[in-house]
Design a protein around this nucleic acid. Structure first.
Length: 873
RNA sequence: GCGCGCAUAGCUCAGUUGGUUAGAGCGUCACAUUGACAUUGUGAAGGUCUGUGGUUCGAGUCCACAUGCGCGCACCA
């Protein structure tokens, strides 16, 4: 068995086989886990469903590493772990992607040329292809997801949930149909929500002009073409320049359009900006539309005139520019203003404009009748609004219940979330797209019915589909069978933990909280871990356009999945971006291989592996390593408990490579008969590594014949080290290091050393053979008599005499003197610290005692060095 | 404009509640090596923790201000 282990770990030869063995075991399904009962604590994680717009990238490798590490850790703790896998139909993103693809293949206008059914079919084909690839990739990443519960945001079950949710919200009066200004993408021919807009900076011209020669007030705008739709001018109510005009209406012919402009007062107008007067275009600005509604409420209405159409062209009401594109219209209007000498000023400004994050074009504000979700309306029988629910969920907990509180890591995102909640506007739900859940609304003449198709003839379903986040918002419970009252829902919801990138905090996290608190009166998850973006080595985002994309599957093929997982998790802290480096993956691969070779060595020596239930330490080194292992177990547990994956890996690496391999395994070669201790630690160390390196640990674990590591038991903390033993072992280590250092300084190989004599060795005396073995010096003894004419190394109270073939007395003097100088410096620092009366009076006893001990040790060392110095002279 | 984050070794980053002479990985330099591992071992060099003030017995850590970089939200008049 032992000699079957290859010299190096070759991930690609074993990973697929291991994943299949997990699938066969059934352990990804929580009900199949050994020893679970109804009362076993559950731990649920939903996978943020990857979009079926394409294949997985490195960011997904980070996501899967995070959530799978968490799931595997919880499983090892004995919990009933459910990780729900799935994919997202990503309505607008996928349709945009397929349309683009079709257009590149020569289909000029896919919607027109193919029609609804054929286009949807094309998108479905594409989506199914991506989905299959994605699911394969998720498996390659080692994700321990329950495939029997695989979900898709656009499958039949999720459609039932979406329709039910929409219908309930409608009958609760939260969803309404309303005529309002929407965000419109001309290119996508659809609305989008406030969250789907990306603002970009661009240069623009701010024009200041008057509507007509007799018009008393000048206004400024960057969008002259919309001014044919102006119906008012707003001024600040206290502005003395314009006060007198408030309430008056001026009729003016502006570029062929007959405008009726009412002067209104609004607190929102900044008197110091431009002319202090604002041309109000209710149809093409959300702010102006707000003024329109305020005026309506005040019973002092202003008109609304739509001058830009959904096709991006000026409407028939646009006067002389009717029918032309808005960009041409702008030029035309500016030319007209110049001709009429109405233009007073032109200045270059930098402005931020919103663009569609999927189609890339500038978003137009256009008034339309759409479906909206009202966040400010009282929910019947709840006495709260959706906004209230979203706020409660992260502050007091729902209805003040602390077990219904979402906590966000890192905490700073809570504040961002809350700011957004307070500024939330009604959510536009309807999209003029074809790929997505069709809105469950039915029309017959004036009648509207929401829900399943009504009885009778002549009902026509709404053409529009739902914002994709409507379905992903219900992900935590739609995947568990809602709206049916399933046992899954009872057992696994609220889910326990979720991870996501900060870029979808508003889009997804917020909506999951909204949906779950509304539909179930439960939070969707208890803990949300927010991670940053994985960037390339130069700190740039991975993207197709920059051509810096890296296929995680290729990395896995070359370095192994475990190496990839470790490399993306180490150095990654909550909420912060991190960089991906090939060197980092190599280092992780080396680490994985180290684990492999440690095992190979132990198995070879122990003649195979066996489970060791408990072990009694025989030597100081045994006591030390067992205690170090216990300490490591404790640390790793608490680090994962607080989502510090990076540090957990560092602690594990440090123990594995430094303590276990470099010290203890080397000692084991000297002390011998350590099979039990080695096997005891190795088996458990593999378990600690399993969440991060599932494949290699499972592969090595096979040797133990203890079943599969995926369902092993997280190690208990069993050993401690007395402080005497601790310092004794530390002294051994410092002695070894000091000797190695000494040899290195004297450019001498250990084999050329005659002997080492330790004088005043104390506890070191018993460790002779270890010190000799670790320094590889062939002869070592402790003695009360110091050898003649050798200057020793001083380690604590002990003097170590290393017999070299030849020694340069002058350099020995320099060595001792620099030692004295260093000790003197630190003693001075210690003394001045302890001489500070305030320090002694106010610092805690423990700190002061520590400082005193430090000083005593230094003084001891200095005395010894000075003695040697005197002897030299 | 409002808000947030980051600034620590050549590079990439750690650094729980303020308490040893500030750490790791990679890289660099020197040395070693036929017994688990060159995907290795040993040793070393390398930092006034962005700056200035403050709080404190004590600050990389807390506070204020400044500088640089990144991001979010508004304002799209």
């Amino acid at each position: 068995m032992a000699n079957e282990m290859a010299k190096a770990y070759e991930a690609r030869l074993v990973e697929d086989g291991i994943y299949n063995s997990w699938l066969t075991s059934g352990y990804f399904t929580p009900e199949n886990l050994p020893n679970v009962t109804d009362s076993t604590e559950a731990f649920t994680v939903v996978m943020p469903p990857p979009n079926v717009t394409g294949v997985l990238h490195l960011g997904h490798a980070l996501e899967n590493s995070l959530m799978d590490a968490m799931a595997r850790y919880q499983r090892l703790l004995g919990k009933k772990v459910l990780l729900i896998p799935g994919t997202d139909h990503a309505a607008i993103a996928t349709q945009a992607k397929v349309e683009k693809k079709l257009m590149s293949e020569g289909v000029k206008n896919p919607r027109q040329e193919l029609g609804r059914d054929a286009l949807v079919e094309k998108i479905r084909e594409f989506a199914e292809g991506s989905k299959a690839t994605i699911l394969k990739q998720v498996k390659k990443l080692g994700t321990s997801a329950d495939w029997s519960r695989l979900a898709y945001t656009f499958d039949d079950k999720r459609n039932v949930a979406v329709n039910e949710l929409f219908t309930r919200m409608y009958s609760d009066g939260l969803i309404y149909r309303g005529y309002r200004v929407v965000n419109w993408s001309v290119k996508g021919q659809s609305t989008c929500s406030d969250d789907e807009i990306e603002t970009i900076e661009r240069e623009s011209v701010l024009y200041t002009f008057k509507y007509g020669k007799d018009f008393p007030i000048a206004i400024s705008t960057t969008r002259p073409e919309t001014k044919v739709g102006d119906t008012a001018v707003a001024v600040h109510p206290t502005d003395d320049r314009y006060k007198a005009f408030i309430g008056k209406t001026f009729d003016v012919e502006f570029a062929g359009a007959k405008l009726s402009i009412k002067i209104i007062a609004s607190e929102d107008v900044d008197p110091s900006f431009g002319t202090g007067a604002l041309g109000v275009t209710p149809a093409h600005s959300a702010i102006d539309f707000g003024m329109y509604e305020v005026q309506k409420a005040k019973q002092d209405p202003i008109e609304i005139t739509q001058v830009i159409g959904a096709d991006g062209k000026m409407t028939a009401d646009a006067g002389s520019v009717a029918g032309i594109g808005f960009e041409a219209a702008r030029e035309s209007i500016v030319a007209w203003l110049k001709e009429q000498s109405l233009l007073e000023k032109e200045e270059k400004v930098v402005q931020n404009v919103g663009t569609s994050d999927r189609y890339g074009d500038v978003i137009e504000a256009i008034p339309m009748t759409q479906w909206w979700l009202n966040v400010n309306k009282m929910i019947p029988n709840r006495g709260k609004t959706l906004r209230d629910l979203m706020r409660e969920a992260v502050t007091t907990g729902l209805d003040g219940k602390s077990d219904q509180k979402v906590s966000i890591t890192p905490d700073r995102f809570t504040k961002l979330y809350l700011d957004r909640v307070e500024n939330l506007r009604d959510w536009c739900l309807s999209r003029q797209l074809w790929w997505g859940h069709r809105i469950p609304a039915w029309y017959r003449g004036e009648e509207i019915v929401v829900g399943p198709k009504p009885e009778g003839d002549g009902w026509i379903q709404d053409e529009d589909t739902l914002d994709t986040w409507f379905s992903s918002g219900s992900w935590t419970f739609s995947t568990l069978g809602w709206p049916e009252q399933t046992t899954d829902l009872k057992n696994y919801h609220p889910t326990h933990w979720i991870q996501m990138g900060y870029e979808i905090l508003y889009l997804w996290l917020m909506r999951m909280i909204l949906m779950s608190t509304y539909a179930l009166n439960q939070i969707p998850f208890k803990d949300a871990y927010i991670h940053g973006i994985l960037r390339d080595k130069d700190g740039k985002k991975f993207s197709k356009s920059s051509g810096n994309g890296i296929d995680p599957i290729e990395v896995i093929e070359e370095y192994g999945c475990d190496a990839l997982r470790i490399s993306v998790l180490s150095g990654n802290t909550p909420g912060n971006d991190s960089r991906y480096y090939t060197e980092k993956v190599e280092a992780a691969r080396n680490l994985v291989n180290k684990l492999w070779n440690i095992s190979r060595f132990i198995f070879t020596n122990a003649d195979g592996a066996r489970h060791i239930e408990s072990v009694t330490p025989k030597t100081l080194a045994d006591k030390w390593i067992l205690a170090r292992f216990s300490e490591t177990t404790k640390k790793v547990s608490s680090l994962i408990d607080r989502y510090d994956f990076s540090l957990a890996i560092e602690v594990l690496r440090d123990f594995t490579w430094n303590d276990f391999a470099d010290w203890y395994l080397e000692i084991a070669k000297i002390e011998k008969e350590k099979d039990d201790v080695l096997l005891y630690i190795l088996e458990r160390l593999l378990i600690l590594w399993h969440p991060f390196a599932p494949f290699v640990t499972e592969e090595i674990y096979k040797n133990f014949d203890s079943g599969m590591i995926i369902v092993a038991k997280w190690p208990a903390v069993e050993y401690e080290l007395s402080s005497e033993d601790q310092s004794a072992f530390e002294q051994v280590c410092s002695t070894v290091i000091a000797v190695r250092n000494y040899l290195s300084e004297h450019k001498t190989l250990p084999k050329d050393v005659e002997s080492i004599t330790m004088v005043n060795a104390g506890a070191l005396a018993e460790m002779e053979s270890i010190i000799g073995g670790l320094t590889k010096v062939r002869s070592i003894r402790s003695s009360n008599e110091r050898p003649e004419s050798i200057t020793p190394i001083v380690v604590g109270a002990a003097q170590i005499f290393v017999q070299l073939p030849s020694v340069d007395a002058a350099s020995e003097k320099v060595r001792i003197e620099s030692g004295i100088a260093e000790a003197t410096k630190f003693i001075a620092a210690q003394e001045s610290k302890l001489a500070n009366a305030d320090f002694v009076a106010r610092a805690p006893e423990k700190v002061i005692a520590g400082e005193r001990q430090k000083l005593a040790d230094l003084q001891e060392k200095l005395a010894a060095l000075q003695k040697e110095h005197a002897a030299l002279l």
